[in-house]
Amino acid sequence: MTETRVKVREAKPAPVSPPSHDDRVDRVFVIRPAPRWPHLDLAELWHYRELLLTFVWRDIKVRYKQSFLGFAWALLVPVFTATVYVVIFGKFAKFPNANIQYPILVFSGLLPMQYFTSALTLSSTSLVTNVNLVTKVYFPRVLLPIAGVLVPAVDFMIGLLVLLALMVRYSEWPTGPEFALAPVFLGLAFVTALGIGFLLSALNVRYRDVPYAIPVFLQVLPLLSGVPYAVNEIPQKWQWILSVNPMTTVVSGWRWAILSGPAPDPAKAAIGIAVAIGLLVAGLAFFRRSEPRFADTI
């Protein structure tokens, strides 16, 4: 402490150089009352891309800091959940499995579901957990929920290793060119989480009920998305009802792409995709509309 103090007195700050004339010199910011329906400034988002990556990098760094098992949690959580599902639903309840080995059916469904769970939780609390940033510095606030849905992708990648091991163990492999569609279904999970994340994070600024409501919803979601069973083997009526939930399409589509599961019904998938896009548009609109008041109400 004393040593560094001595150093401080010696260290001279670099002289402040005259303003450099870079590309931002002629930028003029206009400050005015918020428009009723603000549009998303994509050029501005691009300008802030490095900050987005910095947020993602920070959250990944911090995620398992000071936890003894660290990133092993990214393996343990889905493995533990899958084991419970396999025993309860597979052994006792004998859920329909569409001729896929039950453990791999469950685990392949759980992976995108766990991603969705983390993404939704992180993004919907993102504004409130970063309250010190929101009240002290300007940046497009959408960066925070976006970072929230990007961060758990790391856990997903780690979980993929377990899935690979299970695929080897049960000799379940992608069967056709639909394998190329796997990222599309993950993208659907991303879009859904982002849409709800926008909505809930903005809502959470005003109403701190959100963190209480989310777990309730997320606990039943796997059962409503076909994680412990194959959706196409339940009654048609219920299939239609469940198709409103985009995660149903994610789970069945992802299984179809990477395993030998049956193809999702295009009509039902279309409903799921439409709902996801609707959520994204509505969520973003609500977020942008509330954004000017975040710093005042948070």
């Binding site: 400050i31 005015r32 000017p292 710093a295």
Partner: peptide, 25 residues
């Protein structure tokens, strides 16, 4: 630009740095 005005406007010409506290974030 942390918050928006209710009325009026302002123009700022140039690259802005703001320091509302040390160690933000």
């Amino acid at each position: 630009r942390i918050t928006t005005p209710t009325e009026g406007r302002a123009e700022i010409r140039g690259r802005v740095g703001s320091l509302l506290e040390v160690g933000t974030g």
